[in-house]
Computed example of a mutant assay.
Amino acid sequence: MASEDRAKPASTGASGIVRPPRTRLDQPKLPKRRLVPEYDAETFGRFSERIARFLGTWRFIAWMTLFIFAWLVWNVFAPPDLRFDPYPFIFLTLMLSLQASYAAPLILLAQNRQDDRDRVTHEQERKQNERSIADTEYLTREIAALRIGLGEVATRDWIRSELEDLVRDLDDRRELFRAEGDEDR
């Protein structure tokens, strides 16, 4: 029965349009064949960055200079039957053009990846700065509220001065009561 489900012929609807057989949703699709091979973009990107970093070093320039110098020396001073690229050095020009045609896109790919990393880093720094500003504003408001609250809090010196005023008032009243009591007698 299961093989019959898979081998159903195309059906025609009421309109006469030929429809492909329905696929079952409980089974995975068969993988499609592709003309272009699949590759891991991240691995290829890391590889291109390594090449671009090497192409941008003095070591690469030194090795390339040594290679070209050896090529020229060999093709000028070697016996004529051992020379593989005579004077106009067409093959050397072709090799250098091929190297440049591969190096330029790899360098551009590495730069694009670096731009993407810089963009992500910039976005993270911007968000961190926004959080820092918000935290600073919050702390500023809290400090201002504490200052206002401290302005309303009774300090030790204020309480001492109030108590001294009350003691003076009590002393004055006592003296007033004594003076009144002495007058009544």
Results as ranks from 00 to 15, higher is better:
residue 63 W to S: 15
residue 71 W to G: 04
residue 64 M to W: 03
residue 43 T to A: 05
residue 54 F to P: 00
residue 63 W to Y: 14
residue 67 F to Y: 14
residue 70 A to S: 10
residue 77 F to G: 02
residue 63 W to C: 15
residue 51 I to C: 11
residue 66 L to M: 10
residue 48 S to A: 11
residue 72 L to E: 09
residue 48 S to E: 02
residue 47 F to D: 04
residue 41 A to H: 05
residue 49 E to S: 13
residue 67 F to Q: 11
residue 42 E to C: 00
residue 47 F to N: 04
residue 70 A to E: 06
residue 44 F to V: 03
residue 48 S to G: 02
residue 42 E to V: 04
residue 68 I to H: 05
residue 70 A to H: 05
residue 46 R to F: 09
residue 67 F to D: 12
residue 57 T to Y: 05
residue 43 T to P: 00
residue 53 R to I: 01
residue 54 F to W: 07
residue 62 A to S: 10
residue 61 I to W: 05
residue 42 E to A: 04
residue 69 F to T: 08
residue 53 R to P: 00
residue 67 F to L: 13
residue 71 W to R: 01
residue 56 G to A: 15
residue 74 W to I: 00
residue 59 R to M: 06
residue 59 R to L: 09
residue 75 N to T: 03
residue 48 S to I: 00
residue 56 G to T: 14
residue 76 V to L: 04
residue 58 W to Y: 13
residue 63 W to V: 14
residue 68 I to R: 11
residue 58 W to E: 15
residue 57 T to H: 06
residue 57 T to P: 04
residue 69 F to A: 06
residue 62 A to G: 05
residue 60 F to S: 11
residue 69 F to N: 04
residue 44 F to G: 00
residue 66 L to A: 13
residue 41 A to P: 03
residue 60 F to D: 10
residue 43 T to H: 00
residue 56 G to I: 11
residue 46 R to N: 09
residue 64 M to H: 10
residue 76 V to D: 06
residue 75 N to R: 03
residue 44 F to C: 00
residue 71 W to Y: 15
residue 42 E to K: 07
residue 52 A to C: 08
residue 52 A to T: 04
residue 60 F to M: 14
residue 48 S to C: 11
residue 43 T to Q: 01
residue 76 V to Q: 08
residue 59 R to H: 13
residue 64 M to R: 13
residue 77 F to M: 09
residue 50 R to N: 14
residue 69 F to W: 06
residue 65 T to L: 01
residue 70 A to M: 09
residue 42 E to W: 02
residue 58 W to D: 15
residue 55 L to M: 15
residue 58 W to C: 11
residue 76 V to R: 08
residue 45 G to K: 07
residue 69 F to S: 07
residue 57 T to I: 09
residue 68 I to A: 12
residue 58 W to F: 12
residue 66 L to P: 06
residue 67 F to C: 12
residue 58 W to V: 12
residue 52 A to K: 03
residue 76 V to P: 01
residue 77 F to S: 10
residue 61 I to D: 13
residue 51 I to V: 15
residue 47 F to M: 05
residue 58 W to P: 11
residue 64 M to P: 10
residue 52 A to R: 02
residue 77 F to D: 08
residue 70 A to V: 07
residue 70 A to I: 08
residue 51 I to D: 04
residue 53 R to D: 05
residue 50 R to H: 14
residue 60 F to A: 12
residue 57 T to M: 08
residue 41 A to V: 07
residue 43 T to I: 07
residue 51 I to T: 09
residue 42 E to H: 04
residue 73 V to M: 08
residue 59 R to V: 07
residue 40 D to C: 07
residue 72 L to P: 00
residue 59 R to Q: 12
residue 60 F to W: 13
residue 40 D to V: 01
